[in-house]
């Protein structure tokens, strides 16, 4: 499985220094994305998914964070110690990013065409005409009708779905090896969401581009990802193929998430919720972070569980002292 990781994060811990202490945003996160693979990272707000993606691109403001342990490498480049110059050639070249706000991710005072050719020419030695042709073909791939006139428009003339497709086209403009997509469809309505995701996936498969897909939407993960990591309070709690994790969740948190999906609820019944709140990241318990909300906690949970394979012949890993058994599974 570990052939050619495009992105690999090893035992990474990051904290943000605050008054008297630090917010421990990531606690020993290890994940990897192989070539051409689509990997999802799920978790609720504040679980560290966005910090992971920002850190992979080294986009967190300099000096605001502290890496306490671990390392990140993209295509063999050590990100944590990379210079800003190295990062600039990497960003937009080998690694691109798609954001969750398509409304603000384009400069409102520039036409789409200029913005696209500008990015293309930043990384590729192309003249204006060639860059324009490339932009047109990229937009065509994103099923934008009449790409030539779209290039002449300002961002406010496009709908949210179109803007996000323009941004995806931009992300693919330099044939990246990895795209980090941070909740790219959250701001779109459901029908557009599906269309955008399918276009993204098709293009990624075609170019063998790997995608690190950050989301909180389980339904999207099930359709979109090959593998999935579940995060809680800055740690990974479960990892495995989408099938393994979504159809046979072992960690009580994942099970709670699945049970809380409104799609699976019986109409008319109350929606399920996980009791309690996410722990304060500046005062994390010594043991399992989920223990206070967990239905099957015991004294053992005062020690921190490690992500381990549930049995030898599987990639399905869980960080829990009391993983649910296969037979108990409701979903």
């Amino acid at each position: 499985m570990t052939q050619n990781p495009v992105l690999s994060i090893n035992d990474l811990s990051i904290e943000f220094p605050v008054y008297k202490g630090a917010v421990k945003a990531l606690n020993g996160v290890s994940l990897h994305v192989n070539e051409g693979e689509i990997v999802g990272v799920v978790g609720e707000s504040g679980s560290g998914k966005s910090v992971t993606s920002m850190m992979a691109m080294k986009l967190l403001p300099e000096g605001s964070y502290r890496v306490t342990q671990g390392d990140i490498s993209i295509l063999g480049t050590d990100i944590i110690h990379a210079s800003e110059k190295t990062m600039r050639t990497l960003r937009g070249g080998d690694v691109a990013m798609i954001f969750q706000e398509p409304m603000t991710a384009l400069n409102p005072t520039r036409k789409i065409g200029i913005q696209m050719t500008d990015v293309i020419r930043l990384h590729r030695r192309l003249d204006n005409d060639a860059a324009r042709q490339l932009a047109i073909s990229l937009l065509k791939d994103m099923h934008i009708a009449d790409p030539e006139s779209t290039l002449q428009r300002y961002p406010f003339e496009l709908s949210g779905g179109m803007r996000q497709r323009v941004l995806i086209a931009l992300a693919f403009s330099c044939n990246p090896r990895l795209i980090i997509a941070d909740e790219p469809t959250t701001a779109l309505d459901v029908t557009v969401q599906k269309q955008v995701l399918m276009l993204l996936k098709a293009k990624a498969r075609e170019l063998k581009t790997a995608i690190l897909f950050i989301t909180h939407d389980m339904a999207v993960v099930s359709q979109f990802c090959d593998r999935v990591y579940v995060m809680y309070a800055g740690s990974l709690v479960e990892a495995g193929s989408t099938r393994q994790v979504l159809h046979a969740p072992r960690h009580p948190y994942t099970r709670g998430l699945m049970a809380a999906l409104p799609e699976l609820a019986t109409p008319g019944s109350q929606l399920q919720a996980i009791p309690g709140n996410v722990p304060d990241l500046s005062r994390l318990p010594a043991g399992c972070a989920f223990a206070s909300r967990c239905p099957s906690r015991s004294d053992k949970c005062n020690q921190k569980p490690v992500l381990t394979s549930i049995h030898e012949a599987t990639t399905h890993q869980v960080a829990c002292w009391h993983p649910a058994l296969q037979e108990e599974l409701a979903v």
């Binding site: 691109m57 986009l59 600039r88 937009g92 954001f99 706000e101 384009l106 931009l170």
Partner: peptide
């Protein structure tokens, strides 16, 4: 703004961000 953040993810330099 989002577009400045996006420009950074596309590898834009500081000068480019200011002038553009």
């Amino acid at each position: 703004m989002g577009y400045v953040k996006a420009a950074r993810t596309f590898g834009a330099s500081r000068w480019h961000i200011v002038s553009w």
